[in-house]
Amino acid sequence: MFKGYHCCLLLKLLGLDICKDTIVGDEMHRGVSGGQKKRVTTGEMIVGPTKTLFMDKILTGLDSSTAYQIVKCLQQIVHLTEATIFMSLLQPAPETFDLFDDIILLSEGQIVYQGPREHIVEFFETCGFKCPERKGLADFLQEVTSKKDQEQYWVDRSKPYRYIPVSEFASRFKSFHVGMKLH
Score class of each variant (00 low, 15 high):
Met1Ile: 09
Met1Ala: 13
Phe2Gln: 00
Phe2Asp: 03
Gly4Asn: 07
Tyr5Thr: 09
Cys7Arg: 04
Leu11Val: 11
Leu14Gln: 10
Gly15Lys: 08
Lys20Asn: 13
Asp21Ile: 04
Thr22Asn: 15
Ile23Asp: 08
Ile23Gly: 08
Val24Cys: 14
His29Trp: 14
Arg30Leu: 09
Ser33Met: 09
Ser33Cys: 09
Gly34Leu: 04
Gly35Leu: 10
Gln36Ile: 05
Gln36Phe: 12
Lys37Tyr: 06
Arg39Glu: 08
Thr41Pro: 05
Glu44Asp: 03
Glu44Gly: 14
Met45Asp: 02
Gly48Ile: 09
Pro49Gln: 09
Met55Ser: 02
Asp56His: 11
Thr60Ser: 08
Thr60Trp: 02
Leu62Ile: 06
Ser64Phe: 05
Thr66Ile: 06
Ala67Phe: 01
Tyr68Asn: 05
Tyr68Leu: 09
Ile70His: 00
Val71Lys: 02
Gln76Leu: 10
Ile77Gln: 02
His79Arg: 11
Leu80Glu: 14
Ile85Cys: 07
Phe86Tyr: 11
Ser88Tyr: 01
Leu89Tyr: 00
Leu89Asn: 00
Pro92Gln: 13
Pro94Gly: 07
Glu95Val: 08
Glu95Trp: 04
Phe100His: 03
Ile103Ala: 08
Glu108Ala: 10
Ile111His: 06
Tyr113Cys: 07
Gln114Cys: 07
Gln114Pro: 00
Pro116Arg: 10
Arg117Thr: 10
Glu118Arg: 05
His119Met: 15
His119Asn: 15
Ile120Trp: 02
Ile120Val: 11
Val121Glu: 13
Val121Pro: 01
Glu122Cys: 07
Glu122Val: 10
Phe123Arg: 01
Thr126Trp: 01
Arg134Tyr: 07
Phe140Gly: 01
Gln142Thr: 10
Ser146His: 11
Gln150Gly: 08
Gln152Met: 06
Val155Phe: 12
Pro160Lys: 15
Tyr161Cys: 14
Tyr163Asp: 13
Pro165Val: 12
Ser171Val: 10
Phe173Val: 08
Ser175Gln: 12
Phe176Ala: 13
Gly179Trp: 13
Leu182Asn: 06
